[in-house]
Design a protein around this nucleic acid. Structure first.
Lengths: 106, 106
DNA sequence: AGTTCATATTGACGTTTGTCTATATGATTA
DNA sequence: TAATCATATAGACAAACGTCAATATGAACT
């Protein structure tokens, strides 16, 4: 997980509902239908949120017939902790020195 | 740091430039003018970013004459790590059970 | 008192984001 | 084959967001 991945993960986590989804999945694999039961928003909204979390590398999924099961990515927690440690530790190299000053292409 | 504070912190961190500011400040206190030297954006943009970080409880500041110095909040790192641990640990209570289902008033 | 410097505030603008309704797609069942 | 169920996609919309130029405010200096 490099700095860009860390920012992407933070952006994905920086939504109340997506954070709750992550918390649910930390307890174990769930299908979309089970996840949806925990919220008041519509199915397309959930589909959108799961897409955001998957694109950020936070969750992975597999199909089982009609059902799609989601689970937290295997190495996400460790990588996120490691990046957070790097960011907040005063004896690490400054994160601004690890990236070129140029703007990333969108 | 409760769940709402954690979401607020994540939102504040979920910007590439603000994340770099946090990284800079993890090395020690800096005045706004020194922070600005590390970036290409304008002074009002920095002021806005610092406001966001301060409101999220990530940085604190003090004035010294014309200068305003910023520093990471004393307990931010520990609190952020603690909340992250709670979120991602499979043996903790689910974060969705710690909050009522009602939408927070904006 | 006027000037310079450091920083905050205001308002505008283009972009991004969360949510919905409607619809499409794929799997299963009768 | 049609109906049902699970989920993704498309498009619209309002709100939020990052950035800028212009301006205001406060501190220090001359």
């Amino acid at each position: 997980m490099d700095d860009a991945d860390y920012v992407a993960a933070l952006k994905a986590m920086a939504d109340e509902n997506r954070l709750k989804i992550i918390g649910l999945l930390s307890q174990g694999t769930l299908c979309a239908c089970d996840i949806l039961d925990h919220f008041d928003f519509t199915q397309p909204t959930l589909s959108h949120h799961m897409r955001v979390l998957a694109d950020a590398g936070i969750v992975t999924s597999y199909k089982e017939g009609k059902w799609k099961h989601y689970t937290l990515s295997e190495d996400f927690a460790a990588a996120f902790f490691q990046q957070t440690t790097t960011l907040l530790s005063s004896d690490q190299r400054c994160v601004c020195e690890l990236e070129p000053a140029t703007t990333k292409e969108g």
